[in-house]
Simulated scan of single mutants.
Amino acid sequence: MTDARPSAISIARLTTPIGVALLATDETGVLRAFNWTDYGPQMSAWLKRHYPATPPVEGAAPVAMRRAFEAYFAGEGGALAAVPWRAAGTAFQLGVWQALCAIPPGETLSYAGLAARIDRPTAMRAVGLANGANPVALVVPCHRVIGANKTLTGYGGGLHRKRWLLAHEGASFKDQLAA
């Protein structure tokens, strides 16, 4: 989804089994950013950098969006596919983020696999950087990208959350902590 500058951004809080989430939505009810409260300063800096003329205010998430997140955490893995999102990013980043949305719940993909999906098989590092720059985590499921050896790799919300999300979705991965 391409970016159009919002005229308003509101930040809502959502309690989840793995912490309190922050949902930044615009005046049309589109998700602009998602993160956890312990990463709130990073999200605020991202919003300020990309939407400097639109200071966020506390508010409520659209009811349908809140219900989609609640359904996801209640076990409906595909519930977040209906959440509308827009993100500021380069054409390459947007392409990676769109490709992430094609990874179904319960499945994972390596960085090399993701690079191949966007017809850039040698761009694994660039894909990794774009994956890490995803501002609408969970809805754009960057947590579904793991190492080529099926081990967990970094996640902006913390590896403990990535581990929980993948287990919640029934994905197969090698957990270094369980070894």
Rank of each mutant, 00 (worst) to 15 (best):
A4R: 15
A8D: 01
A8E: 06
I9P: 00
I9D: 04
I9M: 02
S10L: 04
S10Y: 04
A12D: 00
R13V: 06
R13S: 09
T15W: 02
T15F: 01
T16G: 01
P17K: 00
P17V: 06
I18N: 05
I18T: 08
G19K: 03
V20D: 12
L23N: 04
T25C: 07
T25R: 04
D26A: 03
E27V: 08
G29E: 08
A33R: 03
F34C: 03
N35M: 04
W36I: 06
D38N: 15
D38H: 14
S44K: 12
A45P: 07
W46F: 14
L47Q: 06
R49P: 03
A53F: 10
P55C: 11
P56N: 01
V57P: 06
V57A: 15
G59L: 07
A60F: 07
P62F: 07
F69D: 08
Y72A: 08
G75L: 14
G75C: 12
G75D: 14
E76S: 13
G77P: 12
A79W: 12
L80P: 02
A82K: 11
A82T: 15
W85K: 00
W85I: 10
G89F: 04
A91G: 07
Q93N: 08
Q93S: 08
W97I: 10
W97P: 10
Q98A: 15
A99R: 11
C101L: 10
A102C: 05
I103L: 12
P104C: 07
L109D: 11
A112S: 14
G113A: 10
A115I: 08
A116E: 13
R117E: 13
D119Q: 13
R120L: 12
A123I: 04
A123P: 06
R125Q: 13
L129R: 13
N131F: 01
G132S: 14
G132N: 12
A133R: 12
A133F: 10
N134H: 06
L138D: 01
V140I: 15
V145C: 05
I146G: 09
K150R: 15
T151L: 07
L152G: 05
T153S: 05
G158A: 00
L159K: 12
H160D: 14
H160S: 11
R163N: 05
W164S: 07
W164E: 01
G170I: 03
G170Y: 10
F173S: 01
K174W: 01
D175A: 00
D175P: 01
D175F: 02
L177E: 12
A179M: 09
